[in-house]
Design a protein around this nucleic acid. Sequence first.
DNA 1: TGCGTTATGTACTGCTTGGTTAATTAAGAG
DNA 2: CTCTTAATTAACCAAGCAGTACATAACGCA
Lengths: 239, 239
Amino acid sequence: MRGFEGALMREATEVTKSKEAKPAVRDPEGVRRDILTVAMEEFSQNGLSGARIDEIAARTKTSKRMIYYYFGDKEGLYQRVLEEAYGKVRGGEHDLELDALDPIAALDKLCRFTFDHHRANPDFIRMVMVENIHHGRHMQMSKTIRDLNQPAIEELEKVLRRGQADGLFREGLTPLELHWQISALSFFNVSNSATFSLIFGGDLFTDEGQRRLSRHVADMVLRYVLRPDHFDAILADNS
Amino acid sequence: MRGFEGALMREATEVTKSKEAKPAVRDPEGVRRDILTVAMEEFSQNGLSGARIDEIAARTKTSKRMIYYYFGDKEGLYQRVLEEAYGKVRGGEHDLELDALDPIAALDKLCRFTFDHHRANPDFIRMVMVENIHHGRHMQMSKTIRDLNQPAIEELEKVLRRGQADGLFREGLTPLELHWQISALSFFNVSNSATFSLIFGGDLFTDEGQRRLSRHVADMVLRYVLRPDHFDAILADNS
DNA sequence: TGCGTTATGTACTGCTTGGTTAATTAAGAG
DNA sequence: CTCTTAATTAACCAAGCAGTACATAACGCA
């Protein structure tokens, strides 16, 4: 009675349909993604030269052969993983709808978002660290990556302009530099947590410590940007 | 008249005295340092797994065997190089004689010094990046490294206390967090310059751009620390 | 239902690379 | 002056590892 409808016996997997839409016979795109996912872990964990193709293959549902079939060689795979990493964290800035907020609240939100977002994506951070060790050699040809990051600056610029138009923010500030500062604080928090906490203890990296840091990063940026006569707007922010 | 006081004939090298004090026959300490110097370049350039012992050996005046003789294995060498890196950049803070300056000037000087110092020691930065990729695994046993960094906090704490005593600085600031902030800005500037300038262009990393950044980092920290009613002390600082 | 193309499994290879063996020479102590 | 120990040389090795050869199965299409 059961399982006789087709003559082809390849539906053995239809029973295990708990996984959604799994062709189980051939699935090129699934294989690609599987490889990329595992490779991202491996590369972000061990770096380009530390990563092992055999290890990636072993943790994949597919084989080493497929890695070379789809990505050519180790560097090719690394490069695609790097792009993937940048792609995965892109453009959250736009969804914040900063335009709906007053400049101060918007900048505050942007800072906290960046801080939290970096913290939530350590794999991305580590990929960027690795790529910097390699002097950005594998990013040079990737126009994709460059384009992905322009929106961040633009959002920031809008906020900045509005704040200046309202007489809240100082003149002479550039969005690029401000982005650099916010990034620096948010990035370092993740990238150097290992050595920093080994040297100075882990107090800054507890949940409570991170909440405080996040707040203080936003505070720092606001104090940097605000005209002194508008400081009362954030004075409640201490702790 | 010259050089006949000793009967020992081992001064063959006195002829080639262009190099200072070079025994040329055997020089254990010199060999050690030679290895460490070359290894530092190699590790900071290529990371732990990317570095090649053969390459290090080739660029040394000595041989591969000597590396293993003195350092045991690759990780042993790496660990010593890491300690060396931390040692090389240590304790400049104390030589600043911050006590001789008023709190504002002292903090300003400390920020700029940290920024410039990091910038002047990219090898150190890269070693720390590499070690963070490895989750600080090789630092755990090194008490040396931990001790080397405590003075930075202490100097900062003194400045902070003085500033607060004078009513210049806000209350509720902790030296550790402040050190974290200064480090973040200074570290990121070097560690991520490759990817950042590839994405956003190199304007921030020209000599002029770096001077501006250095100034603005100090400015940012001061504005974070100062009580709003003392901002006039740094208002001349814009540009 | 046959056929070119895409995708995949198995087994293999050769170079790279961390690490070693064993013999040799210089330095220093007594 | 000798004898022990520290320093150094040169050749060697086995495992690790990126990359490949070759056969073959599934797919899309006519």
